[in-house]
Amino acid sequence: MSENMWDYPGTAGHRADADLTGYKVDATDGNIGKVDKHSNDVGSQYIVVDTGVWIFGKEVLLPAGTIVSIDADSRTIQVSRTKEEIKSAPEFDKEKHLGNADYHQQVGTHYGAHRAPGTGTSDRPGQGRI
């Protein structure tokens, strides 16, 4: 998988022209919500997931490097993190955090520290980048 937390892994099945909005997102231990927004900007790729009632209607930002697979037929994205790892991520506020380098650093560090075995994404703090 990708060495950069902010790029889609080559094996995930991502197409640059794909609109992932509305895709169901599954953590390793169950569904976490649907994609509300996504970025295809190289070096700053991510999905924003609307968790609905799962964690009190909040949205979470997941770097593209956490994505294991994208199934266009079932409109489902599988990520390599647990619900708890996602729930414990730095709080996300769309108005404050999109494009914010400090926030991306925090998120990259959080998910890098919670690297799933065999994902190939960096587990060194500070390796998530914009």
Rank of each mutant, 00 (worst) to 15 (best):
K83R: 08
T51S: 10
G118K: 02
A89C: 06
A16P: 00
I70C: 02
V25R: 11
Y111C: 00
V25Q: 11
T121I: 12
H38Q: 14
E85I: 01
P125W: 15
D73W: 03
V25W: 05
L98W: 02
G118Y: 01
M1H: 12
Q106A: 11
P63E: 10
D102R: 01
W54K: 14
A89E: 04
G13M: 07
I55T: 15
S44K: 13
D41C: 05
D93H: 02
K83H: 14
T121Q: 11
V68E: 15
P125A: 13
G43S: 14
K87L: 10
H114A: 11
E84Y: 07
K34T: 12
R15Y: 07
F92Q: 07
Q127I: 05
V60C: 01
T76G: 10
V35E: 09
Y23P: 06
P63V: 05
T21N: 12
P9Q: 08
D50Y: 00
D41R: 15
T28E: 14
V25D: 08
A89K: 11
A27S: 14
G43P: 08
T21F: 03
Y8A: 05
L61P: 02
I67C: 02
D19S: 12
T28M: 08
L61K: 01
A64S: 03
K58T: 15
I70T: 04
R124L: 15
E3C: 15
V48S: 05
D102S: 08
T121W: 03
Q127M: 13
K24H: 08
A72P: 10
Q106E: 14
S88R: 09
R129P: 00
K37C: 00
D17M: 01
V35K: 06
W6K: 01
Y103M: 09
D29C: 07
T21I: 05
D123K: 13
E85C: 00
M5N: 06
Q127D: 15
V60N: 02
G126H: 13
G120K: 06
R124H: 14
H97E: 02
H114W: 11
K58V: 13
V79E: 09
S74E: 04
K37E: 11
A101T: 08
A27M: 01
I32S: 04
G65T: 04
I77R: 10
G126A: 12
W54A: 06
Y46C: 01
R81K: 08
K87H: 00
Q105G: 12
K24G: 06
V79R: 10
D102E: 07
S2W: 06
T109Q: 13
P9V: 06
G126T: 09
R81Y: 00
R124T: 07
G126E: 14
S69H: 11
E95F: 14
E91A: 15
I67D: 00
E84N: 09
D19C: 04
R124K: 12
E59N: 14
F92D: 04
S44A: 15
I67K: 01
D50W: 00
K37L: 04
F56W: 04
E95P: 05
N40T: 15
A18H: 11
G52F: 05
Q45F: 02
D50Q: 10
A72V: 12
